[in-house]
Nucleic acid binder design. Structure first.
Lengths: 145, 145
DNA sequence: GTATACCCCGGTTCTCCACTGGACTTTGCG
DNA sequence: CGCAAAGTCCAGTGGAGAACCGGGGTATAC
C-alpha cells in the first residue's frame, strides 16, 4: 500500500473539511482545490467516491459544497484509504487463488505485512492529523525565529 | 508496497534455489521457470537483477545456472524486495518534496506505515519461508487423510 | 568446436493512473 | 420565473510502467 495521488488528495481535502467543521457552511470543490493545489475536476471524482462511501455529505445547488459526515476524531485514515482506493482492489487481491504451496505461503506473509501497515493507518484519525499539523506549524515558527 | 508479479516470481525462484542449496549443482532458469510456472525470459531479467544485487551467483556456459549467494537464514524478504523493486523507487518517494505542511504530515504517517510493513518483511528469511512451506505441506497431507 | 547455458539490449502490448470535457440536475436569489 | 452557481454523471485522453518476447553475443563443459 503505497501513497497514491488519489489518497493524498483525498486526505488533503478531508483535512480541509475537518478544519472547516466548526463553521456550518460547506466548502466548495473550487476552494479546496485552489488552496491545496489539486486539479478540481479530479478532486470532484474523489469527493464523489467519498460521498458514496459515506465519509462526506454534499449540498447541491448555489451555496452548496461538502461537509464532513462524521466527527474528525472518529474517522480513521484506514477508512479513508479503503474508501478511496476501492474495495474491488481487495477483492482482486483476495481472488487470486494460489496455484502452489509456495505461492500461498508468500501471500500469507504479504497479508501480514499489509495488516501491519493497516494497523498504523487505523491508529490515526483526521483529528490526529490536524493536531500534528498544528504542532508542525509551531515548530516552523520556532525555526523561523 | 503491494505484492507485484516481479516480487512474487523472484521469491519463488529464490525459494527454489534455497531448497536446492544442499546440493552443489546450480539450478537453471528453464528448470525454475518450468516448475514454478514463470515465463522464462522474464525470470532471466529478475535473476540478473538479483545477481547485480548480490543475492545470487551465476555460472555461465554448459552445466551453468544460479546458486544462492548467501545462507538461506541470512537473506530476509526485505532485502529481496528492495533489490527487485529497485532502489530508485525509494529515491522517487523520498525526493518528492512536500509542498505544504499538510502534505509533509501525511507523508510522515505513510512512512510510519511503510516502516511497519518493512519490519514484517525483515522478520522473515528464506529459511523461514521454507519451513512455513513444509508445515503447510504436512497440513495438506492431514487434510487429505 | 559445438552444444548449452547465461548476458545484454531493445521492442510490444496492455493496463492503470492522473487528468480533462461536456451535458445534465439541483438549488439560491433577484 | 430565470439565471448563475454549485454538484453529478459519463466518457475520453496521454503518459508511464508492468509483464513479456526476441535476437544476437559470450563464456564454459565436454
Amino acid at each position: 500500500m503505497d501513497l497514491s495521488c488519489k489518497s493524498e488528495y483525498a486526505l488533503l481535502a478531508l483535512l480541509a473539511l475537518a478544519a472547516n467543521a466548526g463553521r456550518g457552511e460547506p466548502l466548495q470543490i473550487r476552494q479546496i482545490a485552489a488552496e491545496q493545489n489539486i486539479p478540481d475536476r479530479y478532486l470532484e471524482q474523489l469527493l464523489a467516491t467519498l460521498r458514496r462511501g459515506g465519509l462526506v455529505r454534499s449540498q447541491r445547488g448555489a451555496k452548496g459544497g461538502y461537509v464532513l459526515a462524521g466527527e474528525p476524531w472518529k474517522i480513521t485514515l484506514l477508512e479513508i484509504v479503503n474508501c478511496i482506493e476501492g474495495v474491488e482492489t481487495q477483492g482482486a487481491d483476495a481472488q487470486r487463488e494460489p496455484k502452489s504451496v509456495e505461492g500461498s505461503v508468500i501471500f500469507e506473509v504479504w497479508q501480514e505485512a499489509r495488516s501491519a501497515s493497516d494497523a498504523v493507518l487505523q491508529g490515526y484519525t483526521l483529528q490526529d492529523l490536524l493536531e500534528k499539523r498544528d504542532a508542525r506549524r509551531q515548530l516552523d515558527i520556532m525555526y523561523y525565529i
